[in-house]
C-alpha cells in the first residue's frame, strides 16, 4: 500500500518538485548516513524521479505555439507560425 501511494505521488509532482526531490536524495546519499536498505530505497526513488524529469522534458515537446487575441471580448487562439512572423519583421 505504501508503494502505491509513493507511485501516485511521483506521477502528480511537477517538474520543479521532482527535480527538487532528486537533488535532496543526491545530497542524502552523498552524506552516506542512511541504512543500507534506506539508501537503496532512496536510490530507486531517485532513479524514478530522474526518469520522470527527463520524461517531463520531452513531453513538453508536443505543445503547440499560438497567437492569443481578443475578438469582440472573447479570447481566440490561432496557430503561430514563426516563418510568417519572421517575414513580417
Amino acid at each position: 500500500m505504501t508503494v502505491d501511494t509513493k507511485g501516485n505521488d511521483n506521477n502528480d509532482v511537477c517538474f520543479e518538485e521532482a527535480l527538487g526531490k532528486l537533488e535532496v536524495i543526491v545530497k542524502l546519499l552523498e552524506k552516506g548516513e542512511l541504512k543500507l536498505e534506506d539508501s537503496l530505497d532512496k536510490f530507486a526513488q531517485g532513479v524514478a524521479l530522474s526518469q520522470l524529469c527527463l520524461a517531463k522534458l520531452t513531453v513538453a515537446e508536443k505543445q503547440i505555439d499560438k497567437i492569443l487575441q481578443k475578438e469582440q471580448g472573447i479570447l481566440v487562439e490561432k496557430p503561430l507560425l514563426f516563418t510568417e512572423e519572421k517575414s513580417k519583421c
Binding site: 532528486l22 536524495i25 530522474s50 527527463l54 522534458l57
Partner: peptide, 27 residues
Amino acid sequence: DIHELSRYIRTLENLMGTHMQAIVKEK
C-alpha cells in the same frame, strides 16, 4: 535549455549512482 537541463539531471543520476556505490563499498 533542454540540453543543459537533461545534462544536469543525468549528472544527478550519475552522482546518485556514485554515492550508492560508495555506500555499498563502505558497507
